[in-house]
Design a protein around this nucleic acid. Structure first.
Length: 877
DNA sequence: GCGGATCAC
DNA sequence: TATGGTGATCCGC
């Protein structure tokens, strides 16, 4: 019995992890032997157990699907069949066989580059990566079952002689640039998929090619002594590498060289005018330029081209003729797993229905229509007809940016917060390079059992700086820590992602945005103008199993390492994050007010700012330690020193594992439930509204519990500074700045470093900026009066910038007619007409669907802002 | 909008 | 000793 369970488990694991000899160079291997070794190396590990769990989940999905299948009636099936026929007919009508789509894929790219640069590796089994993970392997190693995405230590068991070379992305990027230069000669709008892969549309080139003189289709061999057709395996010498092919260069050699001639140009080869010849020429040029080989597929659409490029790998090409007959024959026995977008799980689900090839897909379409989602079915039916994208999409804007890191178990809160802070810093740096700002921050966690969790929060404004991102990520992390307490979170990976990027307008000056809004009929080319297609009503079983398909490989944006390159290709202009934005009248007026406010406060900030310098230098050094250890060995993450502010954070979260700080009353709210927390804030805001001119600013310490108070006094080293500050403070003094009142805080206790600044808005509601909460806290804590989030900075300029951003967002919302932040009924009323007049219908619709909480709506995060009336007129009155 | 899951490279 | 990082999409809530 036990044996049986064990073997079932092993089968389950192998379903996911076993060698698939799909991959080129993997045919005819001793599968059983290889799988046995993989199993022995994996069994009992946490990874193994997690894979089993996932396998079971997949099986449950299949079971559910099979149950549904059993309930399908003949009638339903017939009806679906009619529908399928209709769909197929429509699709057939739209079939376009006129394009010449090429998919190029470098052979074992990273490994090939390393072999080129280190000839000793040529005859050895080698792989690129680390003992933890391999990126790719050469063909020699593949004979042993060593493949990409396999951990190096297992690969070593399969092939003890395996040489593992660490990755060198700079090098691959450089080679990739060379290849892409060639791609651009055939299709200037080619689409890179990764460093070593791209889709090209050869249609236009072929048209032009017909009238190209033979000389323009003639290319020299890089090394003249090598006869045509043989592979170039010698390493490139420096002086040779500069020899370039004749085509597309202002080459003087107008007359074709004779094959095998030893003249100045060396041996030449003349390429014909057909698509095969053109692709062969491109591959030839790649090889001459880089000494690396590429494979290519030629077909009338991208889906087929991708499959074709795999057909004659390595160093080969395959052309699928552009006829319906040829396409359908090609598809006939093609395993579904070969289709881009159908992965392990989808394959398994389809297999469970008896579908293994694309022709099965066509035969079972009616069934699939009843069992799968509309998106999936659409993809399936297209695949079954051999259809795919016939035009290569232009550069698409990225939708998210993230950074994540795997490390040895990390369980201490302060270390986790510190790491989180670093990830945010790295991410902010990357985002700055592309001038991105996003509204959604997502924290990703993987525990030591390989269980992955994501936690996201969407803000009403876009964030970009480390402080802004960390402010959110930190809260998300703390929440998870608290949820797990008293057990610690035992992490092996942490990641931070920012998405929901603002449109280019949001990144550019406010003035432009406003003008854009006010110009009737002009589309404000923002992300919100790109509205997703509304899904039509589904005509299927209500609870269908879903297969998550990647409808088109091209939809995937560039991988991170290509982002830079992409932006060089694309427009990218005028989007620098450090660009000083032109300010609108509104912005200037408001900024001035804030500056006055901040200047006043900051005269009391010198002490803090000095401390900030210390903090900054500490975190810089810790960044380096991670940076280097990450690059050298990802699994050797060393915990950096905590910055002072992070230590404070850590200790705070330790002291109060179940609480969040209310930005209004500054009491700790004993919950980790955001809804509860929001309700609390709502109550506070209501209180603040009903009790103007007091209470938000409390000059006694009753807000803090005794324990908190004691903590605060432990630090003590800032006493001197505190005293100076106290001298500068006038208790209860209010300063008015154009309708915004600032009341400087007072400190009744010597050691109390609490300094609160109340903004009293036109409607007499108090917004509080909170300064350091405790003596040992070297970084003051600012709570944004607009978004109410703790801003993890003690730099007033940064904080000021953040508040500005928030306010700007609100102004934008106002102008768009999104009235989230107003409580003024008239604003709601007005906005409706504005929506119609000024915005494209989708946008108006979006605003409508998004934020029309009825008055009876329960308190929510969105509602919490209702206490502040940040309408334009109120702000700038 | 969120979270889990799948997929590609 | 040891199983990645980045980006995208889909689906069910």
């Amino acid at each position: 019995m036990e044996n049986k369970t064990a073997s079932t488990k092993e089968e389950g694991f192998l379903t996911r992890m076993a060698l698939n000899d799909n991959k080129a160079g993997m045919e005819g291997l001793d599968r059983d032997k290889i799988n046995k070794i993989i199993m022995e190396a994996s069994k009992g590990s946490r990874f193994y157990e997690n894979e089993l769990k996932r396998e079971q989940q997949a099986n449950q999905r299949i079971e559910k699907m099979m149950l549904q299948k059993a309930q399908i009636t003949e009638q339903q099936l017939n009806k679906a069949q009619v529908q399928v026929k209709k769909m197929a007919l429509a699709l057939e009508k739209s079939r376009d066989l006129s394009r010449m789509i090429v998919h190029v894929d470098m052979d074992a790219f990273y490994a090939a580059v390393e072999m080129r640069d280190c000839p000793e590796l040529k005859d050895k089994p080698m792989a690129v990566g680390s003992m933890s993970m391999l990126s790719t392997s050469n063909y020699h190693a593949r004979k042993y079952g060593v493949r990409a995405a396999m951990p190096g230590f297992i690969a070593k068991k399969l092939c003890p002689n395996l040489v593992i070379v660490p990755t060198n992305f700079d090098k691959y990027r450089a080679v990739s640039d060379e290849i892409r230069e060639i791609f651009a000669d055939y299709d200037p709008h080619f689409q890179p998929v990764s460093l070593d892969e791209a889709y090209l549309d050869f249609t236009d080139h072929l048209e032009q090619r017909q009238s190209l003189p033979e000389s323009a289709r003639t290319h020299r061999y890089r090394i003249s002594s090598i006869a045509a057709g043989t592979k170039l395996i010698e390493p490139l010498k420096k002086e040779e590498s500069d020899l370039s092919p004749v085509l597309f260069e202002d080459s003087p050699s107008s007359s074709p060289c004779l094959l095998g001639s030893d003249g100045a140009g060396g041996a030449c080869e003349v390429f014909g005018t057909s698509v095969e010849e053109a692709v062969r020429e491109m591959r030839f040029r790649i090889e001459q330029k880089t000494t690396l080989t590429a494979s290519a597929g030629i077909a009338p659409n991208m889906m087929l081209a991708k499959v074709c490029s795999d057909k004659n790998k390595p160093n080969g090409q395959y052309r699928l003729p552009p006829t319906r007959k040829a396409v359908m024959e090609f598809i006939q026995n093609l395993p579904v797993r070969k289709i881009c977008g159908i992965g392990k799980v989808s394959e398994k689900m389809l297999n469970a229905l008896g579908i293994t090839t694309c022709s099965h897909l066509g035969q079972q379409m009616a069934l699939l229509l009843l069992l799968f989602s509309e998106t999936s079915c659409h993809h399936f039916i297209e695949v079954s007809l051999g259809l795919g994208s016939t035009h290569i999409p232009r550069h698409e804007e990225r939708k998210s940016m993230s950074t994540e890191r795997t490390f040895k178990e990390l369980s201490k809160t302060e270390e986790q917060l510190s790491l989180c802070s670093e990830l945010c810093e790295d991410l902010a740096e990357d985002m700055k390079k592309e001038g991105l700002k996003g509204k959604t921050v997502t924290l990703k966690l993987k525990n030591v059992n390989f269980e992955v969790k994501t936690r996201a929060q969407t803000l009403p404004y876009a964030v970009a700086t480390k402080e802004e991102i960390f402010a959110v990520a930190k809260d998300l992390l703390k929440m998870e820590i608290e949820n797990e307490s008293p057990q610690p979170l035992r992490l092996r990976l942490m990641g931070v992602r920012v998405s929901a990027f603002s449109s280019s307008d949001d990144k550019t000056p406010m003035q432009k945005s406003i003008i854009g809004f006010l110009q009737p009929g002009r589309t404000n080319c923002s992300d919100s103008s790109k509205v997703k297609h509304q899904k039509p009503e589904k005509e299927r079983l209500s609870d269908h199993p879903s297969v998550l398909l990647q409808p088109s490989p091209v939809k995937n944006g560039p991988k991170k390492e290509e982002a830079h390159w992409q932006s060089e290709q694309g427009d990218s202009g005028g989007r620098q994050a450090d660009e000083k934005p032109q300010q609108s009248f509104f912005q200037r007026a408001h900024a001035k007010r804030l500056q006055l406010l901040v200047a006043d406060v900051s005269t009391q900030q010198d002490g803090y700012e000095k401390n900030m310098c210390v903090t900054a230098s500490v975190s810089t050094s810790s960044e380096e330690s991670v940076e280097s250890s990450t690059k050298a060995n990802k699994n050797n993450y060393s915990v950096p020193e905590l910055s002072t502010s992070d230590q404070n954070l850590a200790s705070m979260s330790h002291a109060r594992p179940q609480s969040l700080t209310c930005p209004v009353c500054f009491n700790q709210v004993d919950t980790n439930d955001l809804n509860v927390f929001n309700t609390h804030i709502d109550v506070c805001l209501n209180d603040a509204a009903s009790k103007p001119k007091e209470s938000t600013f409390s000059d006694e310490e009753s807000d803090l519990d005794p324990e908190e108070e004691r903590h605060e006094c432990e630090g003590g080293q800032r006493q001197g500074e505190e005293e100076v500050e106290e001298e500068q403070l006038t208790n209860g003094e209010e300063l008015e700045f154009g309708g915004v009142y600032v009341r400087k805080g007072q400190c009744s206790l010597k050691n109390n470093s609490v300094q609160k600044v109340s903004l009293i808005k036109g409607d007499n509601k108090h917004v509080t900026l909170q300064q350091p909460q405790s003596c040992h806290s070297k970084s003051p804590v600012f709570v944004c009066p607009v978004c109410h989030l703790t801003q993890d900075t003690d730099d007033l300029t940064v904080f000021n910038h953040h508040v500005d951003l928030c306010l700007n967002q609100e102004v934008l919302h106002e102008l768009k007619g999104q009235t989230t932040f107003t409580i003024n009924p008239p604003a709601v009323k007005n906005s409706k007409t504005e929506e119609r007049g000024l915005f494209p219908p989708q946008q108006a619709g979006k605003g409508k669907s998004k934020r029309r909480d009825s008055p009876s709506s329960p308190p929510s995060k969105k509602a919490k802002s209702h206490g502040f009336c940040n309408t334009i007129d109120k702000f700038f009155r």
